[in-house]
Amino acid sequence: MRYRLFGQTGLRVSELFLGAMTFGEQGGVGAPLDECRRILDAYADAGGNVVDTAINYRGGASEEFLGELLHGRRDRFVLATKYTVSRDGTDPNAAGNHRKNLTSSLETSLRRLGTDYVDIYWVHLWDRHTPIEETMRALDDAVRGGKVLYVGISDAPAWIVSRANTLAEWRGWTPFAGLQVPYSLLNRDIENELLPMAESFGMTVAAWSPLGGGVLSGKYTSGANDAPSRLDPGQISEHDLNVAKTVQAVADELGVTSSQVALAWVRSRSRAVHPIIGARAVEQLADNLGTLGVDLPDEAARRLEDATGFSPTFPSSFIAQTSPWVFGDASRRVDGRP
């Protein structure tokens, strides 16, 4: 396991984050407490130090489980949780990104987690009804109050994140240091705007669903993985299945698993990207951790990308081609942007 800085901060975070969405059995797709303990221990033994949860995961059980599992070793971990999603469906103010919900949600999370601060507090979703100024000021107050150390935002458009961080810069508030978004070979949309924006701001990108909702795990292209799935093979599109088959082919050539190849591709795209790995069993986590030993050849990466059929709407090659036209031939002698 290697470590990088979290955004434009001095916080050291491991290259793989552990997602705790599976901590708790509510909904029938999670893991019991003892298995969660084994998962957390295996992740820590591999050098991982970031655990990511949310106030709504497993009806609150995820935070409660983590509170118990981190007892006596909480400071060894970078603990992250999120707010936005409703805590009470009968209360219109128990959801959203406004100050009231932030305050109540944070207190609820701190109580469940058994701690007096969280290292990273994520805005879980963009709330178009709450002014971004209100959210940024409320987050800054939480940081100044010592209950939050760093802040990030999940699943929001690039223009919102850019505006939020520009406001924070102008007004001396705490900016978003991290961005959490879905990213995999089956979902490369962030390459259009979100990833370039995050790299420009120096933000860390936490990539959730790096295995494409399990489609790239090998369970649909190999008989080696008999883990239960929420998807029926008939629900998978021909395109996605073809990508999964390419992942499987590369994995067979390298002598590794499909999950390890899919995760290695996400890791290789940008130093800013940190895949979030999750598991319902420690064996599944061990397989995912095996990606740390996978060095994906350039030729294999190109094959995987070609299989997706995706190309950014505003690729860097277009910028390179138009620079001489805009700035003259001298731009060719400039290292970086003209």
Rank of each mutant, 00 (worst) to 15 (best):
M1S: 03
M1I: 15
R4C: 02
F6E: 03
R12T: 07
A20F: 01
A20E: 01
G24E: 02
Q26N: 14
G28I: 00
P32I: 15
L33V: 10
L40T: 06
A42W: 02
T53D: 00
A54H: 00
G59M: 05
S62E: 01
F65D: 09
G67P: 04
G67Y: 03
H71Y: 12
R73D: 07
D75H: 13
D75S: 14
F77T: 04
V78P: 05
Y83L: 03
T84H: 08
D88R: 14
T90V: 06
P92W: 12
N93T: 14
A94K: 12
A95L: 09
A95S: 13
S105T: 04
E107I: 08
L110M: 04
T115H: 10
W126G: 02
H129S: 15
T130C: 01
R137H: 14
A138L: 06
A138Q: 13
L139I: 07
G146P: 08
L149N: 10
Y150D: 00
A158M: 01
A164H: 06
W170N: 14
V181G: 00
Y183I: 09
N192P: 08
P196F: 03
W208S: 02
G213P: 06
L216V: 05
G218E: 11
K219V: 11
K219D: 07
T221H: 02
S222Q: 08
G223E: 15
G223D: 15
D240P: 02
K245M: 11
A249L: 12
L254R: 02
T257V: 13
Q260L: 08
P275F: 07
I277A: 07
R280Q: 08
P297Y: 14
D298I: 11
A300W: 09
A300T: 07
A307L: 12
F318P: 01
I319C: 04
S323F: 13
G328L: 01
G328I: 06
R332S: 13
R333T: 13
V334R: 05
